[in-house]
Design a binder for these strands. Structure first.
Lengths: 338, 338
DNA sequence: TTGAAAGCGGTACCAT
DNA sequence: ATGGTACCGCTTTCAA
């Protein structure tokens, strides 16, 4: 900037004025400065300017995701980006990969760079490591899982209700032996979905056979194996409720391999691409991921821009049943009942 | 930092030493400083330190993508992130959404924040707007499409060869009337894939019926409509080469709706999730997106860290045919030939 | 309208 | 081993 000022024969301050578009600069001077800027390929250093500038916004927010490459995270990322863009803000995103240490590391790297706020899909059991951020006043919004060990805004799906809705759909189509296949029960969302399953089964007076409840499935292979086992039982389930999309895909794969895809009903939690192209198309309870992301970003910017005095908020984003076929398969007539 | 120094009763410089882990600080002093830091929730400002620090690396790189939420971009993002992490670097990513203006805007926002380098999937026809970055010495790597209007590293897929391979697979299974369905021919990659199609058809002495060549398809709906039209021709194609994954999905959808999914062969460029679960499973030529991303990041860091004196490089990442069934469907016997 | 000087939060150099 | 001081690149305050 000094060089630009020298080349243009003006003071450094005038250059600053030109860059910031302050109107009180004489046009001829302005042109000279502009030319000098181009000639020297000068690019102002935003970090340096923010150092002195009031407000201390950096125009950067951070996003801690499970894995940038999975559809849930990627969609969330995009939704947050769109809102951020409207606030002239850039987004840093990082994959936590379910590694609590990585979450702490990333959060620190982002706060060191003075992100104006953080949106977090937590992988840690406890987020009290963020206490100093809260005290300093950095806005925090939690997504998908509520915060533990501190108070902050959160945006969650209606997991329990959604799971109940999926189970209800299966029951409405005549199923009584409905299996549960889900992720680690220690994950809050998985636990809520399991609760939805239990509640709906109870509400309808249906018995849960403990042999048809399978937790700890977290990839397609283990899910497929579990389904294969379940269907080898003496009294196999006639319908499956899968509580996460990888589990759903694994289940569908297993049914196809067993030649049972048109015999056993499936309703899954979480939509996934091409669910409608499969045969049968897969019935799911979908989360509105874009809306979750947009809401989280909105809450964040309200705190960044508005007062920080707002009370902590919890937004519940409704889930939606999308019947496509697999959940509407009816059970075989039970020969014993004739 | 001043406050920390005051509270600990030491000079500001000692605080700086503690933060940077300089060994020449007496342990008792170090502890006092640490305590003061915690008590005040002090977080050093990385931007400020980089201002004075030598080397002027910010530990941030930027990534300009089509759309954060599409699988190609998301996978690329993750691959770049993994390499960046090994270099203690954070990633800014932004969606260009095929809007040239947005690309320029984003690039500027990132360079203003002093990104150490840029990885770009260009949407613009000409990237000469980046000339000043090149002159300043900011490393640039182009992905998927080569740079125009400036020289820089690039990482590309073997589009022509891959397309030829897909067409070859169809021809190997007896097809002669092979249709081409692709994106805007103005897109470099689409043009290359079309060339691969033309070359392979010529090499095998197969005639291209101009009515079965359809460009400008860029979503599933237009692709599906095009397929429906093609199959209504008097002499419909017996196989389809689709040059992009949305086109492939559209084509598959149309064939299903027409009840022809087991009659008409399809080979697509670009893999997509669940391609193997469809019926028939879809034969594709897959790009190695993770490797593309990792390579791009590697080239970038070589320039960031090593000399900038390297000549511009172009890396070609091979594509791979994955036969899954749809491309191996044989043509119906032609009644006119008996 | 323009400029000089102080300062943002930190580091580098040189004394001590 | 510790501290003083100039300085990074830019904005702010205030004077000219």
């Amino acid at each position: 900037m000094r060089d630009v000022a020298a080349l243009a024969g003006v003071s450094i301050k005038t250059v600053s004025r030109v860059i910031n578009g302050v109107p009180s600069v004489a046009p001829p001077l302005r042109d000279k400065v502009q030319k000098a800027i181009e000639q020297l390929d000068f690019q102002p250093n935003l970090a340096a300017s923010n150092l002195r500038r009031a407000g201390h916004r950096t125009g950067q927010i951070a996003l801690l995701l499970e894995d940038l490459s999975n559809p849930f995270s990627a969609t969330l990322n995009r939704a947050v980006e769109d809102v951020a863009r409207a606030h002239d803000t850039l987004v840093f995103a990082g994959s936590v990969a379910e590694d609590p240490r990585r979450e702490v590391e990333l959060a620190r790297a982002f706060t060191l760079r003075r992100a104006d706020g953080l949106v977090i899909v937590p992988a840690t059991a406890d987020q009290s490591y963020l206490h100093s951020e809260v005290r300093v006043g950095t806005p925090l919004v939690f997504v998908d899982r509520p915060p533990r060990g501190l108070v902050a805004d959160s945006v969650l799906s209606t997991n329990t209700e959604g799971a109940a809705r999926a189970v209800g759909q299966l029951a409405d189509h005549g199923h009584e032996r409905i299996a549960y296949l889900g992720d680690y029960a220690t994950i809050v969302t998985a636990a809520q979905r399991f609760r939805g399953y239990e509640q709906e089964m109870a509400r309808r007076g249906l018995r849960i056979d403990p042999r048809t409840v399978r937790h700890d499935l977290n990839d397609t292979a283990t899910a497929a194996a579990a389904v294969t086992e379940l269907l080898a039982l003496e009294e196999p389930p006639t319908a499956l409720f899968t509580s996460q999309n990888l589990v759903t895909i694994g289940a569908v794969t297993a049914l196809r391999d067993l030649g049972l895809r048109h015999r056993v009903a499936v309703a899954g939690f979480d939509d996934f691409p091409l669910a409608d192209l499969l045969d049968p198309a897969v019935t799911v309870v979908a989360q509105d991921v874009r809306r979750i992301g947009a809401t989280a970003a909105r809450l964040l910017f309200e705190r960044i821009e508005g007062g920080d005095a707002l009370p902590p908020r919890e937004c519940l984003i409704p889930t939606r049943l999308i019947p496509r076929g697999s959940g509407e398969i009816r059970p075989p007539r039970d020969p014993r009942r004739g």
